[in-house]
């Protein structure tokens, strides 16, 4: 039972990683940029949700509406960073945009530190319902919500990418943006949409994260973002189902390590798993084995 309990904890954490990893992988898939500022979007999402909670309470509205405020704000922020920082660099060497992404990351961190002060702020309890008990198993409502909603979001996203014309346009742009353009696809809109979806998912992840670790601070996105990036690489960067699987695997590994090996070694083991997987499958779990071109 203890084991299943740990797996559920792992799934909860893994869902959060997966949601963030999707943002990394979608952006990488479409413009081959590792968006190191993506982790900060989580932090921004958490702060915006926190701020909107007090407004919502004043207006007498339910506080879970803060999710929508955070999602919309982060989606717009994602579009703006792409428009302002990455689009002008689209044809420059990849390293330039990578450095820019790191710059944006610092900019966001410090801007939010200035606005909200460096002191961590408590996040109000969003789920008050009692945990569900199945036999000797206790599942908290927040864990259940996190896992179920994340899975639903991922399924919807997968259908969107496979079936919707905008989703297909995203796949077309990621394969060959020159050819996509000549099929009448507006690549700028498609890239904006990708950033909006990725950042929106990060905002959702931020709120799930705050449900189990209810402290908001300006550095919270760094480690979470890094782990999610590891999840994306583990699953195969650029491959959407890969990000989902990578996130869940990482979450379960981390939670089991904490339970059975050592809490302090948890991060070492997670990154160790990455190294081992990459030795045997350099393209990640779901990654395509691209042959090196000579």
């Amino acid at each position: 039972m203890e084991f299943i309990q740990q797996v559920i904890n792992g799934l909860q954490l893994g869902s959060i990683y997966a949601l963030v990893a999707l943002g990394y992988t979608m952006v990488y898939g479409i413009i081959k940029l590792i968006n190191f500022a993506h982790g900060e979007i989580i932090m921004v999402g958490a702060y915006i949700a926190l701020t909107s909670v007090s407004f919502l309470v004043q207006m007498g509205l339910p506080i879970w509406l803060c999710v929508f405020v955070a999602v919309v704000f982060c989606a717009i922020l994602g579009i703006l960073t792409e428009r302002i920082a990455y689009r002008p660099l689209r044809n420059s060497p990849r390293l330039t945009s990578l450095i820019t992404a790191i710059g944006i990351s610092f900019l966001l961190q410090n801007a939010f530190m200035l606005i909200y002060s460096p002191t961590p702020k408590p996040f109000p309890k969003m789920v008050t319902a009692a945990p569900i008990t199945v036999g000797s198993l206790q599942i908290s409502m927040s864990a259940l919500l996190t896992i179920v909603i994340s899975i639903v979001i991922m399924l919807v996203l997968q259908i969107f990418i496979q079936k919707n014309r905008l989703g297909k346009a995203m796949r077309a742009v990621s394969e060959d943006y020159g050819a996509a353009q000549l099929m009448g696809i507006n690549i700028n809109h498609t890239i904006s949409l990708t950033f909006a979806i990725g950042s929106g998912l990060a905002a959702v992840a931020a709120i799930f994260y705050c449900m189990s670790y209810p402290l908001v601070e300006y550095t919270m996105g760094t480690m979470l973002g890094l782990k999610a990036f590891v999840a994306a690489v583990l699953g195969g960067i650029g491959v959407i189902p890969g990000a989902m699987i990578g996130g869940l695997v990482l979450g379960i590994v981390e939670s089991l390590t904490k339970a059975y090996i050592s809490t302090q070694l948890a991060d070492a083991v997670t990154f160790g798993v990455l190294i081992v997987v990459l030795i045997f499958r350099p393209a990640g779990i779901m990654g395509k084995n691209t042959k090196e071109k000579v």
Partner: peptide
């Protein structure tokens, strides 16, 4: 040739149609 190689034959054509929608 610059087809979308990972996408089905039908979807390759549909993508081109789609963006006239």
């Amino acid at each position: 040739i610059r087809l979308f190689k990972e996408i089905t034959v039908l979807d390759n054509v549909k993508i081109a149609f789609d963006h006239q929608m």
